[in-house]
């Protein structure tokens, strides 16, 4: 891995870290949800500081260049995050539905009681 690429990784990590901290400070992000982003920054920094990790792993998996392995890892993490996000959206969707139904039914019950 070239030095430029490694510096780029570290810059990306710092940028991501800053972003997460800013959102937490503004009370727009829950700490429990921020954990995976800290994990991603950590992975970036480890890959940049210890290029041997990517080199060995690339060799092991018969991938031509370590950089390609880094791409692969990043894409894999992203796909996994998107999947978890989809699950989360589904759950939220369901909660909103249940809340709406409960609210609407309660309102009807109240009106029926008045009659």
């Amino acid at each position: 891995m070239s030095l430029t690429f490694r510096i780029l990784l570290i810059l990306a990590a710092i940028w991501a870290f800053r972003f997460v901290i800013i959102e937490i400070r503004k009370s727009k992000l829950q700490i429990t949800d921020s954990l995976s982003w800290f994990f991603i920054t950590l992975v970036f920094i480890l890959l940049a500081l210890f290029p041997q990790i990517a080199e060995h792993a690339a060799e092991l998996l018969h991938i031509q260049s370590p950089v390609n392995l880094v791409y692969l890892v990043v894409i894999a993490i992203l796909i996994f995050r998107i999947f978890l996000l989809t699950v989360r959206v589904s759950q939220l969707d369901n909660k909103v539905k249940e809340l709406t139904q409960r609210l609407a039914i309660d309102e009807t019950d109240e009106e029926d009681e008045k009659k």
Binding site: I21, I24, R25, I31, S34, L35
Partner: peptide
């Protein structure tokens, strides 16, 4: 394990940046 991770990151790392 997850609880410990969240608590550690929150107290040690995030705590330093919270207003």
């Amino acid at each position: 394990a997850r609880y410990m991770m969240v608590m550690s990151v929150s107290i040690l790392l995030i705590g330093a940046f919270r207003p």
